[in-house]
Computed example of a mutant assay.
Amino acid sequence: MMVSFILILLWVAMYRRLWRNQGDLSIGGICQEGSFAHTLYMYVNTVLGKSLQAMEARKLEKLLRQVQSEFGFQIRSWNLVKHIADSSLVARIIAKDGKSYMLKSLFIPAERQRFIVESERRLAQEGVKLARPISTLSKHPFILYNETPYVLYEWIKGKTGQLRDRSDLVALTQVMARLHRRSVRVVYPDDIMPYEHVRWEKEYRDRIDSLKSWAQSHQTPSSPQESMIQRYLPFFEHVAEVALEQLLASDYDNYMNGQVAAKCLIHGDFHQKNLIKHKGQWVLIDFEDVRYDFPSKDLLRLYSMYTRFHPFDTKTFNSMMETYFRHHPLPAGAKRLMLTDFLFPHIVERTLRKQVYASMKTEMLKHWLKQEKRKAMYVSLILSHKQWH
């Protein structure tokens, strides 16, 4: 009996480490409160959690001493907000003078981190509200610890955004449009290498191949979800090919080569959780995917988050697009190119490639596929009119 109990403890401990490595310590859906499993988990969490926190503290001790030395303040307290091994680390630091900071590392090359920080600084100079990076005493944009860059940011206090209804979507679209408009004025020093998204022709072709590959490898569906996708996939493969044709006939190269002012800096992960309401204003955080691209990439990201819980309707879609163009006017050809990117089934391809559908209930998947199809049909209709109304 004792051996079995010890084995259970070890099993829970092992999975606790896995949850920690994934940055998710929640037990919702795993152990119901009041159950034996929940009691056992909480026991292990208490006993082993303290030792794990102590191990993390020891690992971070040298890093925090370096932070104090290079930024010139004494640390009163700190807590680990997020830590995914070799992926990201976020810690909140409170200095002895009471100021709060965020220490962050993405475990990326210094060159890429330098572009991110320089983008944040120059966007802030253009009036974009964001969490500002803080330079070291020697004016460096970050510190290097074990050859990994760590950036110190001001801590932004407030509530994250929401996407409850159309008004929320429109409000966040305004923030995005202003970001893009102001980013056009950003100029980098010669020693900063700008980062750009992969060219769309390659992206479209790769994703079309991905859709075809999924269809080929799932000719015999093994689940109701796969059967459902097979019914809709021919439609999405068709609109992907149509979008590629539209792209090849567009002025995409002129826009991306700077001959027409439409290329801008995009956030790369623009959604409600990356905006914080601070002193009555929206403040952007997490620019880790910032790069030069076309505005549709941010708009697609935000809209995909909205449509997770809302059905497609033309009024909402039109309101979003019209709001964007009102705050960031673009040439007619650029508007058409944005719609082309909305026509391409990016979200569908990603859902298949990442196998997100496997955890979706069949009815939910069916509803979502219907909404994606309705969106594509509506965008196709707009493109057939040759202009945006």
Rank of each mutant, 00 (worst) to 15 (best):
M2K: 01
S4W: 02
L7C: 04
I8G: 06
Y15C: 01
N21S: 06
D24Q: 03
L25T: 05
G28S: 13
I30K: 13
Q32E: 03
G34D: 05
S35E: 00
H38I: 04
V47L: 11
K50L: 12
E56C: 12
R58S: 04
Q66P: 03
V67Q: 03
V67G: 00
Q74R: 05
I75K: 06
R76G: 13
N79L: 11
K82T: 11
A85I: 01
S88Y: 06
L89S: 14
A91L: 14
K96N: 07
G98T: 01
Y101F: 05
K104E: 03
F107E: 02
A110S: 14
R114E: 05
K129P: 08
L130M: 10
I134D: 06
I134G: 09
S138R: 09
K139D: 12
H140Y: 08
P141M: 01
F142R: 04
L144S: 07
Y145T: 07
P149W: 13
Y153T: 05
W155P: 01
D168C: 13
L169M: 11
V170K: 02
L172T: 13
H180P: 02
V187W: 00
P189K: 07
D190M: 11
D190N: 13
Y195T: 02
Y195V: 08
E201V: 00
E201F: 00
L211N: 02
L211D: 07
W214I: 09
T220M: 04
T220L: 02
P221H: 06
Q225L: 12
P234Q: 02
F236G: 15
E237W: 08
E245T: 15
E245V: 09
E245P: 12
Q246F: 02
A249M: 05
D251V: 01
D251L: 00
Y252H: 08
N254D: 02
M256D: 01
M256W: 01
Q259E: 15
I266V: 15
Q272C: 05
N274T: 02
H278S: 15
V283W: 15
L284I: 15
I285F: 08
E288I: 05
V290N: 10
R291Y: 01
R291Q: 12
S296Y: 14
L299S: 08
F309V: 09
H310W: 04
F312Y: 08
D313S: 03
F317Y: 13
F317S: 04
M321F: 03
A332H: 07
A334G: 09
R336S: 09
M338Y: 12
I347P: 10
V348S: 04
T351A: 01
T351Q: 02
R353S: 12
M360G: 03
L365V: 10
W368I: 10
L369V: 01
L369H: 10
K370W: 03
K370S: 11
Q371Y: 00
S384M: 14
S384Y: 10
H385M: 11
Q387K: 14
